[in-house]
């Protein structure tokens, strides 16, 4: 069932077109990632869904209803800000209770729901702490609990992990994934990190310069990239002439020929070669092994050649 649909949504700031004719749909319960380099309009797209920016063109439908004119506080979506935006004057528990209190949720219902949300993000011991006593990762989880306790239909996460160090980010990635499965809420994750999108999302939309490049599952985007940009964004790629490309692991090498190995790097389970200074090939350690300067010939299956647009 389609939960959120963007139809030809456009947003301009003066002369910059931040989001250009974007059409997308997100299914209920789906983990969806919006992926693209810095400045490509991801945050702007998300802010339009949350209600903080008004589209200059196109429609945004939530559950089939056009949300134009609905203020942020009336939309069944919640946003986890990149900067967390935890209320500094409220304790952790009061931060989480905020969204229930202001919407007139009965008092006896608030306490158990806050406790449940805090347990979900493993902060049940820190309910009385003030935000300035928490680490960045903990504040991040307060922001998450504060949004989850509202039981939105869709949770928007704007680069929620980018401020965390590498190790914590890895932990939070699997924790987010677990959370999403547990609560069954659709997640829209904005990120510029393709590994993050690949490892977490059910489907990914790749954006560039305000435009949608391609939507698909991580496997689809990897196996059948539609554009040169997408092809280069995920993993390594050899770009051939006439918009054709071949993945390094699809290149086959055999001994003897006009080409030469110019680089050979051992990666444990495979070798990574560069042939004639440009063509990359990765070959499993079970296959033939070559040395630098060895004469080889390179080939591939025509079925493995990708035909890219643009």
């Amino acid at each position: 069932m389609t939960l959120l649909a963007l139809e030809h949504v456009t947003k301009r700031f003066g002369d910059t077109v931040a989001v250009d004719d974007l059409t997308l749909d997100i299914q209920a319960g789906e983990f969806f990632a919006l992926l693209g380099p810095s400045g490509c309009g991801k945050t702007t797209a998300m802010r339009m869904v949350a209600g903080f920016e008004t589209p200059d063109g196109g429609r945004i439908l939530l559950d089939g209803q056009d949300v134009a004119g609905t203020p942020p506080e009336k939309r069944p979506v919640n946003l986890v800000f990149q900067s967390y935006a935890v209320f500094p004057h409220l304790s952790v528990a009061r931060n989480v209770a905020f969204g229930l209190e202001v919407t007139g949720t009965p008092k006896r219902e608030i306490a158990p729901r806050v406790a449940e949300a805090l347990a979900l993000v493993k902060l049940d011991q820190r309910g009385d702490a003030m935000p300035n006593q928490l680490s960045g990762g903990q504040q991040q989880r307060v922001a998450l609990a504060r949004a989850l306790v509202k039981r939105p239909k869709l949770l928007l996460l704007d680069e929620p992990l980018s401020a965390l160090d590498r190790k914590l980010r890895g932990e939070m990635q699997s924790e987010l994934k677990r959370l999403q499965r547990e609560v069954g809420i659709a997640f829209l994750l904005v990120t510029h990190d393709q590994d993050e999108a690949m490892s977490m999302a059910d489907r990914i939309a790749v954006m560039q310069a305000g435009k949608l490049e391609q939507v698909g599952t991580p496997a689809e985007l990897y196996a059948r990239p539609a554009t040169r940009f997408v092809a280069g964004f995920f993993g390594e790629m050899n770009f051939l002439d006439d918009g054709q490309a071949i993945r390094p692991e699809r290149v086959r090498l055999s001994a003897g020929g006009a080409a030469r190995i110019t680089e050979a790097v051992f990666l444990g389970d495979r070798w990574s070669y560069v042939v004639d200074g440009t063509l990359r090939a990765t070959i499993s350690v079970d296959g033939p092994v070559f040395t630098v300067d060895e004469a080889v010939s390179a080939g591939w299956d025509l079925r493995d050649v990708l035909h890219l647009g643009r």
């Binding site: 800000f81 935006a85 209320f87 905020f98």
Partner: peptide, 27 residues
Amino acid sequence: FDPRLIEASRDLGAGEWATLTRVLLPL
């Protein structure tokens, strides 16, 4: 003052008045 705090308040369901009395004025 971080304007995101105002947006966070609106996002969590607080209208203009609740945002004023519960977030802006206390801070």
